[in-house]
Design a protein around this nucleic acid. Structure first.
Lengths: 149, 149
DNA sequence: GTACTTGCAAATTATTTGCACACAC
DNA sequence: GTGTGTGCAAATAATTTGCAAGTAC
């Protein structure tokens, strides 16, 4: 996964006249090594371990920035859209475990045909799509078959 | 669109030992006749016209309820997930205009194959999916080709 | 009549802003 | 050195809760 390569990130930042700072590195590190989606507050708490001076404000600002650059992705669950997951910095979608929050990214969504049909039918010009799949990851399936809700 | 049939709604509510009240009717009416997605605050403002006593709290509660029953649907845009659009009370997805917010619902998303492949590859058991397409509606395409951002 | 609902005020939570100081390049 | 970032405190916005009174059935 190219997510973590500091070189790539630094380059992206430079393009926008932005800098690679400790705070940004810390936030991205947390997400990149997390196997589930996290809220700003959770990221803040975790990142403070390696960067005690970190402010929550900075986390918010950093999340916006990283999302804009495509290094992380907002995850939309039924209880809100304020969690973030790492992203491979390309067109990607998330497969989310409803039980533990674990995410997997995938990119071959193959919606071309659907999009074409809908464009013809509705006259819309479609240029962005968001797709998320939700279910239970292998390990949450076995854990006493616990079904959420 | 079955959205508006008060009989259907009343029945759904009854099933859950809920009542069909003026407030709920007012909120649903606003959404059903809106051609774009609206935030709780917008819905509140509009619904007050026909139901001046309405409280914002009730709008929040009603939106939750109607969403749960499938009569409306949360819309997730890049700037948040706090808007709602009418829904045909079946499995459905939204096609959203990024310029004016207009929404169209569609249901034939045909993701079965993709889901099957991913289940095999990842071991996840997938049971929910959310799909949204974003673009420009016909009328926003002609309006001085204004492209958002 | 009863249980579910409402609207208000207040509390809570989430997010943004302004600004002096600090740091990456 | 310069311009971008940061962290703090404070402001704002969004959402939720408790509760007495109201209303659908």
């Amino acid at each position: 996964m190219p997510t973590l390569e500091p070189t790539t990130l630094r380059a992206s930042l430079k393009q926008n006249r932005r800098k690679l700072t400790r705070a940004r590195q810390a936030v991205l590190d947390i997400l990149a090594t997390a196997d589930r989606h996290l809220t700003p507050a959770e990221i803040y708490r975790r990142a403070k371990a390696t960067h005690p001076h970190l402010g929550l404000t900075t986390v918010y600002r950093t999340l916006d920035l990283l999302a804009e650059l495509g290094y992380i992705q907002r995850v939309h669950t039924s209880d809100g859209c304020h969690s973030y997951a790492p992203s491979a910095h390309t067109h990607g979608h998330q497969l989310i475990c409803a039980v533990c929050g674990r995410t997997e990214e995938f990119s071959d969504c193959d919606l071309a045909k659907l999009i074409q049909t809908l464009q013809r039918k509705t006259g819309f010009e479609i240029n962005v799509h968001m797709l998320e799949l939700v279910g239970r990851c292998p390990s949450c399936q076995t854990k006493r078959g616990a079904r959420r809700k």
